[in-house]
Design a binder for these strands. Structure first.
Lengths: 341, 341
DNA sequence: ATGAAAGCGCTAACAA
DNA sequence: TTGTTAGCGCTTTCAT
């Protein structure tokens, strides 16, 4: 038998298709009795409205698009999970897009998604979320979007983030309190990146508070990726005056630090403390478990979609939501070795 | 200005909307000149066809749905990535669904997705892909689907998989060749699970070939999850006659073995060899890197969508694709300690 | 509170 | 090779 349509429901319930449509859309104007009767026949004949038809008919879709690029899997997946869950609450669906291009081609790619899909809104994850050109283009199209991003771009678009600067400073202060004085920092963004690096800034701020001048040999960049962090860490940890602690701007890079430490015969945390950032899955499965900062990724995905579905992600007047972070104690950090104090 | 429609293109190009539609759908019946002219005006006015309208108009959508449940992130993400990429090649979009229910409710949930979205096909990942009830229901609906699953279910639906049994046997043989005789095995599926556990079967087969009887104390289950593996591993590795090697049915559980080994003061691989399975991201970022078996997850996602888009995923006559696997050498395995041989 | 009917943007016979 | 026109399944005025 064919899939039932709204006509089948109407006929079976003895009402017009308009009434069925009203029930489907929770129109308060329908009499409770009618509603119940329609609802009953809907389940009875197993009717389920066709999404595409609803979209074309109403001019607005029930899609939310999640965009990412070159993803660090532990970053993107929890966000996606939170987004899917929030979508479901409102009967929306999530469409995921792995963007490939950069620059103008990226803008074009994203606008293509917008025009074809006509989603209720877009969730932009890093690094897409800090692209001024992209945000500009979406604003010009008047498309709702939420940026999951720490930096401001000083614009009125909706944003979900947490205070990375303060969180990073807290971690560095904790290492300082444990007696560490030579603390290496492995940044995610390369120095001179157009966007400010809040994690790095927080770290440096805490150092400055303690009266410690940054040492160029103790700063490196791993681009947030495990593999790319190996070499910079070999260099940093191989120095004669090596740091007694390394603070990595995400957990994947901290995992790399554990590997390099083992390679160099350094025990963690006795000889070297390693701190991560994000409290991703990685932090829990490496040995020793990482001391890190919990970034609420799942909630961020949830909140981002929430903003969209509540209509609070208008590009010219977007709301901002700031979420809490939290220190997570692992076994990868300890007091600095006595002789280095 | 409003988003241009097919009418705007037709008017600007001086043709009918039917012709524009034909160009959009690569109808070979259009004269090359006309096609070019239409294409030119399409880019000129920045027209992009509305997906929903195309779906309602044609009765078939341009969606592929990826279903998962309680996902092991490193398993699901590469599959999703491969699926997204294959979708894009044919102008399709991927919709992801985190299923929540089980039993009848699950079937209902999935049929809801099918009816609403009307996707070209579904990609079912583990553990959904081994649910007879679900496959049965989809077959009844005549919905194309591809199962990413090792087991046969002895049915005619499309499937993408690799030979887990042989791969697992190869890993065990390799451990045997290194002199190990007491080899622990941490299974993903609990004993007595309705579906056959190919990895476990392969391991036992290799043991039998070597004339070794399975030892109940050396078999445990971690349900493919890191956390759930900790306790069973503590028990297994804490025995007086502990194994000299553990083979875990996925990398996440092998990471747990590394943690438990450290906890018990066992050096890996000197005191204990640890082998994983999947060659997921986890295998590369733990210390030491895992010896494991490469499961081509990305390709599996790609192939699954390929089957759908080529129309080779009909539930009553689905094609099967078997992909190659490969041993991956890490630093987590070594020869058995001399005194145990 | 409900129904009739005109869209929504596109596809697909059927003609020409 | 192209245009005309009737759908697709739903939403949404506008009446009643």
């Amino acid at each position: 038998m064919k899939k039932p349509t709204i006509y089948d429901v109407a006929k079976a319930a003895g009402v017009s298709i308009a009434t069925v449509s009203r029930v489907l859309n929770d129109d308060p104007a329908v009499k409770p009795q009618t509603r119940d009767s329609v609802l009953a026949t809907i389940t009875a004949i197993g009717y389920r409205p066709n999404l595409s038809a609803r979209s074309t008919g109403s001019g607005r879709s029930r899609w939310v698009a999640l965009l990412y690029q070159n993803p660090v899997i532990h970053y993107i997946h929890p966000i996606q999970q939170g987004a899917v869950e929030r979508c479901r609450q409102d009967g929306h669906l999530l469409s995921v897009h792995a963007c490939q291009h950069t620059g103008d081609a990226l803008v074009d790619e994203v606008l293509g998604i917008v025009d074809q899909l006509q989603p209720r809104g877009l969730v932009l994850t890093l690094p897409l979320s800090i692209s001024p050109a992209l945000c500009e283009a979406l604003r010009a199209r008047d498309t709702p979007f939420v940026r999951i991003a720490p930096q401001g771009l000083d614009d009125p678009s909706a944003r979900v983030y947490f205070d990375e600067n303060t969180a990073a400073a807290a971690m560095t202060r904790q290492l300082l309190a444990a007696g560490h004085r030579r603390i290496g920092f492995l940044a995610g963004l390369p120095e001179g990146h157009p966007q400010p690096d809040e994690r790095r800034a927080g770290h440096l701020r805490a150092l400055a508070e303690a009266g410690i001048r940054p040492n160029a040999g103790l700063l490196a960049c791993g681009s947030f990726h495990f593999e790319e962090s190996i070499e910079p860490l070999r260099t940093m940890l191989g120095r004669r005056q090596r740091p007694t602690a390394v603070f990595c701007a995400n957990d994947d890079m901290a995992a790399a630090a554990l590997q390099v430490a083992a390679e160099l015969g350094l025990r963690v945390p006795q000889d070297l403390s390693v701190a991560g950032f994000d409290d991703s899955y990685v932090a829990r499965i490496v040995t020793p478990r990482l001391t890190t900062v919990r970034q609420p990724l799942h909630e961020m995905g949830w909140e981002a979609v929430d903003l969209i579905l509540r209509g609070q992600a208008q590009p010219v007047m977007g709301q901002q939501r700031i979420l809490p972070w939290q220190m997570v104690a692992g076994q990868s950090t300890a007091d600095a070795p006595q002789d280095t104090r």
